[in-house]
Design a binder for these strands. Structure first.
Length: 906
DNA sequence: TCGCTCACG
DNA sequence: ACGTACGTGAGCGAG
């Protein structure tokens, strides 16, 4: 039996670092650790070490680096690599940690003044060959393939660093049309290299170079035999370029005799030093790596600065506490009674929609007394110890997703008073980017790694399955409960540091209960109204479809933008106005610009109806609960970057209103009792009022204090309309667009597009606006400066949004962050206000002993159902509670309307 | 699963 | 020179 040769792995540090850096150059500003160190090259390099070196387990390994700019090559040829751009600072700062990374992976680094990494590798490769090693070289530079022999293979990364070509002598012959590895320098000598900036022979490219070397083998031999060549332009070029060819060949040749000062025996590969690499990864914010290591059973210490206990003891073992879960049985059920006055509780469901999902298990306990797990949901019902504790208002509950838990328990007949800590909610408040609803992912983001993601444990999509083995499910649930417990103190401490304790205690946590109530109450939808609409719309669609086929001259899928594009812009020959990534754009914006084309008009009508039909009529019919004829949306309280709610399953925040045909959908939303009415109350111009408040702009405030029509007032100011003149409707429309623009973080381009003026005119309008409202101008400059300095912006209630891109080099990313810096405090503060109003509203309704129910929130609007008799009270109470939610320097104005249906409450 | 389109504030 | 208005969710076609 043949013994396998020992292995030597040689890594071209510089070329791979460059490859890794430029592979992620687009996202260079996204890969930044908490200290501002760029990490894109580090990430790529680490993947390479993890993905190639560690599994390879070579006997010997070495990473070679360039020592500096000056080498023997620069001495021979002044301009060698002379046209290279300066190495970007973002990469330069990564070299030192790169070397550290190599060391921590158990690999020796080496550099040699006067030589390039290539030469070190060439030299070491020959040393290895002689000593009987199988040598593998990993590089991003294909020229290294000149070192290939039977014993030396070269792996070259391509497409960034994700794919690798393996070069053997056979592979070289294939790529270079039969040439040997040694002949690669001959080809390079003739063709030159633009990136290394040596010339080769002018007028000779790779094809000719290969052809010549097939015939003459080497450059010196070619010049010896040059007389055999027939007279030609090419021959003249070769003769003229002889000196360049020879010197270029020399530059291309990797040295195999560099004076390295080590023996092979000093290159032993030691493998990663986990003890040391974990803090290194923590420093770089390599979360994914840490999760992987935690899953492999390594202990991850708490990140520095995070304290585990109130006593200030560092959480050294936060991720290393052995899990103690016990299956809850009849015999140990009484242990539950001894858990004390604070517990973690988690109820697992088989679907994210907690209104309909089935409970599949739960965990209850704490670190002090252990955790108890069960699949038996009967253990939660009335009369059990678990039931008593959950409903005991003196016992603090620590949970993940309080709202979902409350709604799901409510379906089982339980309440959940005294929720102290909601991991999902707190993590979101600390950083709205942590809006993942998976506990594992979220815990990892916050430095706790001893819990896996649901996707890992349960799978996803069609593969989703709750583990059959008790031990698998129970371990996951136990770890979830521990994650909640362990993250409580550090995250609550962070809330306090961020001055967000009030936001949490007084707004978000109370709101959770209010929302749970609204969702569970639901709103009644009259299916018959929708069914009638459906048959009418079906008819209209069929008619329109036939019309469209006639107008187009043939049948096609009207709903396919791709097919429509072909019909309009190829068959019918209209000029495309806008393109998308994948083809012609056929959006409303484009179609409306096409003028009076009958087909286009039909398409627009068809799309409108089809939208109403599929999204609203059919979409709503699908989600009406059979049991109560209601729809129960879920408000996502931990998703948006600004602090708004969002609504899913169904989305009740985008029910049509602007166009009459769609608006009729609202006729299906009715009160739950006969004779009751729907009442809707909305804030007038809440965002502009918030803007007036936080900018302190006197002119803007004055307009609101005097109760003026705000868009008309803006029009007077920016278009210089006198007090006696009337504001023309079109002018007011433009001013309205300007006001919107200001709220969105205005740009001349955006405004121009929106109101159809030139960019120059738009810029003029904006300049005038800022002259007229100097407080707004000053504030927008200050908020951007503050974002740059602190890295985040805040709402009135200290809701925080981080803006890492505010310092991006990329103009688009940076501009976007700047607009966001202006918009988020405005949109977010408006969200703060209505949230407070909702909390106060529930209390006001309860205190007044009313039967009326708050059902929906649509950003600046609240919708109620009420018995006829309570309406007079509501028309007074609702606007009062809403307009007094937060005292601002300008008044908040609320209007209320009632009707038989949501449609009529206008 | 992604991109397009379109519904809302 | 760059090429964008802010925040969402759902349905559909196409790969």
């Amino acid at each position: 039996m043949k013994m396998a040769k020992p292995t030597l792995l040689l890594i071209d540090g510089n070329s791979l670092a460059f490859r890794a850096f430029f592979a992620l150059i687009n996202q260079v500003d996204r890969f930044v650790n908490h200290e501002g160190l760029h990490t894109n090259a580090l990430v790529g390099f680490n993947n390479l070490l993890d993905g190639i070196v560690d599994p390879f387990k070579p006997d010997l390994a070495l990473v070679a680096w360039d020592a500096g700019k000056t080498t023997f090559r620069t001495g021979k040829f002044d301009d060698y690599k002379g046209n290279r751009d300066k190495t970007p600072q973002e990469l330069v700062e990564q070299f030192e940690p790169l070397r550290k990374m190599v060391e921590l992976h158990g690999i020796k680094s080496y550099e040699l003044p006067g030589y390039e990494a290539d030469d070190i590798i060439g030299t070491t490769a020959r040393m290895g060959e002689v000593a009987g090693y199988a040598v593998t070289i990993v590089t991003g530079d294909r020229d290294m393939t000149q070192l290939v022999t039977d014993d030396v293979s070269v792996w070259v990364t391509k497409k960034g660093i994700s794919e690798i070509d393996h070069y053997t002598p056979a592979m070289v012959a294939e790529v270079y049309d039969g040439l040997t590895p040694a002949q690669i320098v001959e080809v390079k000598g003739l063709q030159g290299d633009t990136s290394d900036n040596y010339p080769g022979v002018a007028g000779i490219g790779p094809k000719t170079a290969i052809k010549l070397m097939k015939e003459y083998h080497t450059i010196p031999e070619m010049y010896e035999r040059i007389d055999e060549m027939k007279a030609s332009k090419q021959k003249e070029k070769l003769i003229a370029g002889k000196e360049d060819a020879l010197s270029s060949r020399d530059l291309a040749t990797i040295r195999t005799n560099a004076p390295v000062d080590y023996d092979l025996s000093s290159l032993t590969y030691n493998g990663p030093d986990y003890e040391a690499i974990i803090p290194f990864y923590q420093h770089l914010d390599f979360k994914a790596q840490l999760v992987k290591l935690a899953n492999q059973g390594h202990t991850i210490p708490a990140p520095t600065g995070v304290q585990n206990g109130a006593d200030g003891e560092p959480a050294h073992d936060m991720n290393n506490t052995p899990l103690e879960v016990r299956s809850l049985t009849a015999t140990n059920l009484t242990h539950i009674e001894q858990l004390g006055d604070e517990i973690s509780f988690y109820l697992e469901l088989d679907d994210e929609n907690y209104h309909t999902a089935n409970p599949v298990g739960f965990v209850i306990g704490n670190n002090e007394h252990g955790y108890f797990v069960s699949r038996d949901i009967e253990l939660l019902v009335q009369g059990t110890p678990v039931n008593r504790i959950l409903q005991d208002a003196t016992v603090k509950k620590n949970v993940f997703n309080a709202k979902g838990t409350i709604v799901a328990l409510r379906r089982l007949g339980l309440t959940l008073p005294n929720v102290a800590f909601d991991l999902l909610l707190v993590a979101y408040l600390l950083d709205a980017n942590d809006n993942n609803n998976d506990m594992g992912a979220l815990a990892h983001e916050n430095g706790y790694y001893a819990v896996r993601t649901d996707e890992e444990v349960y799978g996803k999509g069609a593969k989703f399955a709750i583990p059959e083995a008790d031990e698998d499910l129970f371990e996951h649930l136990g770890r979830k409960a521990m994650a909640i417990q362990y993250l409580k103190d550090p995250l609550m401490a962070k809330l306090a540091e961020h001055e967000q304790t009030q936001l949490y205690d007084d707004i978000e946590l109370p709101l959770t209960s209010v929302l749970a109530d609204m969702e569970a109450t639901g709103i009644t939808v009259d299916a018959n109204t929708l069914l009638e609409m459906r048959s009418k719309l079906t008819e209209r669609l069929a008619e329109l479809e036939q019309t469209i086929y006639q107008q187009a001259g043939h049948e096609f899928n009207v709903q396919s933008p791709k097919q429509l594009g072909v019909v309009l812009f190829e068959e019918m020959g209209y000029t495309p106005i806008k393109k998308t990534k994948t083809g012609y754009s056929t959006s409303v914006e484009v179609l409306e610009k096409m003028g009076d084309v009958p087909l286009v008009a039909s398409i627009l009508a068809y799309r409108q109806i089809a939208k109403i039909q599929s999204t609203y009529v059919e979409g709503l019919l699908r989600v009406i609960h059979g049991s109560d004829s209601k729809v129960h949306t879920r408000y996502l309280q931990t998703l948006t970057q600004t602090g708004r709610l969002s609504s899913v399953d169904p989305n009740l925040q985008n029910i049509p209103v602007r166009i009459e045909e769609g608006r009729r959908i609202r006729k299906a939303f009715v009160p739950r009792e006969k004779g009751w009415r729907i009442l809707s109350a909305d804030y007038s111009q809440i965002e502009l009022r918030v803007l007036a408040h936080i900018t302190g702009d006197k002119h803007l405030q004055e307009a609101f204090i005097n109760g003026e029509d705000i868009h008309a007032a803006t029009a007077r100011r920016i278009f210089g309309i006198g007090p006696d003149e009337t504001v023309d409707g079109n002018i007011r429309r433009q001013a309205k667009a300007v006001n919107f623009g200001i709220v969105y973080g205005i740009s001349d381009f955006g405004l121009a597009k929106n109101i159809g003026v030139s960019r120059k005119q738009a810029k003029q309008i904006i300049d005038t606006y800022f002259e007229q409202y100097p407080g707004v101008k000053t504030w927008s400059e200050e908020i951007i400066a503050a974002a740059r300095e602190q890295g985040y912006v805040e709402t009135i209630a200290h809701r925080r949004r981080y803006l890492p891109d505010i310092k991006a080099k990329n103009f688009n990313l940076r501009s976007f962050a700047e607009r966001t810096a202006m918009n988020s405090p405005i949109q977010g503060s408006a969200a703060d206000i209505i949230k407070i109003a909702m909390i106060n509203m529930e209390k006001a309704l309860r205190d007044a002993g009313l039967q009326s129910k708050m059902l929906l929130q649509v950003h600046d609007e609240l919708i109620f159902e009420a018995p006829e008799s309570e309406l007079p009270i509501l028309h007074e109470l609702v606007p009062r509670v809403m307009d007094s939610a937060m005292p601002l320097d300008v008044p908040l104005i609320v209007a209320s309307h009632e009707g038989e249906t949501w449609y009529d409450a206008k």
